[in-house]
């Protein structure tokens, strides 16, 4: 009996949740007609609730799990006093609200800028520059296991090399895009257009699938029509 009641309670809490979710979904869609108070209420809920959600999530994930449990660990583990450095820098960040000593907040900011610059410089240089160049320096002619030429793969390899070289020519602004160099840059823009077209196609598809998901929620999960 208690199990049935518990299930009923769970079901009714789900129904209320579903009802609110459907109302909010319709409220956001109402923007398609025009900007209206219902949409603005939904937008305001989204801003407030999301800010609260991320504040709590960051607090428990970083301050509680990483800092607090690191400095005051459970039995058996040794405390990691090094973490106080992060907490002190974080506290200094809060000094920004003071008019007199707000400039101290630049210290943690400069730590973040320095760390990001140092980390990303090496990361990008290795993964996005060196590795991509290395992957492009490949044999253009592709062979099958019986040594016959795979024409389609060979053409694909040629296109990749041509596209990377001409694309880089387009991004090289220290020389005027004229003559042979200009032709290279022109071909580079065609490759870039194909890339943008492909990205655009994927963006359209992802938004459409989200729209289908919301319609599926409204007509399927909420109204139970299918």
């Amino acid at each position: 009996m208690s199990l049935i009641l518990a299930r009923k309670e769970k079901r009714s809490s789900m129904d209320i949740g579903m009802f609110f979710a459907a109302l909010l979904t319709l409220g956001i869609f109402s923007f398609l007609y025009k900007d209206n108070p219902v949409y603005k209420v939904c937008e305001a809920i989204f801003v407030g609730v999301s800010a609260g959600f991320w504040a709590i999530t960051y607090f428990f994930d970083n301050i509680h799990k990483k800092f607090w449990l690191g400095v005051f660990p459970q039995e058996g583990d040794s405390p990691d006093y090094w973490l106080w450095g992060g907490a002190i820098l974080g506290f200094l960040m809060l000094l920004r609200i003071s008019n007199k000593i707000g400039w101290i907040a630049r210290w943690p900011l400069s730590f973040i800028v320095g760390a990001t610059a140092g980390l990303y410089m090496m990361l990008y240089f290795v993964s996005n520059a060196l590795n991509q160049v290395a992957d492009t320096m490949m044999p253009i002619v592709a062979y099958a296991s019986d040594n016959s030429v795979l024409w389609l793969d060979t053409f694909g390899n040629f296109i990749v090399v041509l596209g990377v070289v001409t694309g880089l020519i387009y991004f090289f602004f220290s020389k005027e895009h004229k003559g042979l160099f200009g032709t290279g840059a022109q071909v580079g823009t065609w490759f870039l257009m194909i890339t943008f077209g492909a990205s655009f196609g994927y963006t359209v598809m992802s938004r459409m699938s989200l729209l289908i998901g919301r319609l599926d929620f409204l007509f399927g999960d909420w109204l139970g029509l299918f």
Binding site: D61, N62, K66, F67, L83, G86, P108, I112, A115
Partner: peptide
């Protein structure tokens, strides 16, 4: 450090 500062 970065994630702790990010919370603040």
């Amino acid at each position: 450090f970065f994630s702790i500062i990010a919370v603040f």
